[in-house]
């Protein structure tokens, strides 16, 4: 399952400022997994389901558009 940046309104692009979990780490549904920032506003990305972070698709400092995936979760 993909972890995506939600639609944030008029925001066209955000910077992934930090991953809060490491690849391989297990997360609970709703757990904070990453922070993105646009216009001095940090938005916390939460895990859409429980699972293990299988892959980080965007590195810290990378740019991403709302609606796009930043990582992939594998079921446990």
């Amino acid at each position: 399952m993909d972890i995506t940046v939600p639609l944030l309104g008029e925001v066209e692009e955000v910077t992934l400022v930090r991953w809060l979990v490491q690849v391989g780490q297990e997360v609970q549904a709703g757990e904070a997994v990453a922070e993105v920032e646009a216009d001095k506003a940090v938005f916390v990305i939460e895990a859409p389901a429980a699972g293990r972070l299988a892959e980080a698709l965007v590195p810290e400092g990378g740019r991403v558009r709302p609606g796009e995936a930043i990582g992939r979760l594998e079921g446990t």
Binding site: L8, G9, E10, V11, A38, D39, K40, A41, F43
Partner: peptide
């Protein structure tokens, strides 16, 4: 309140 990060700022 509009659900828009940019508009909030």
């Amino acid at each position: 309140h509009g659900r828009d990060l940019r508009r909030y700022v």
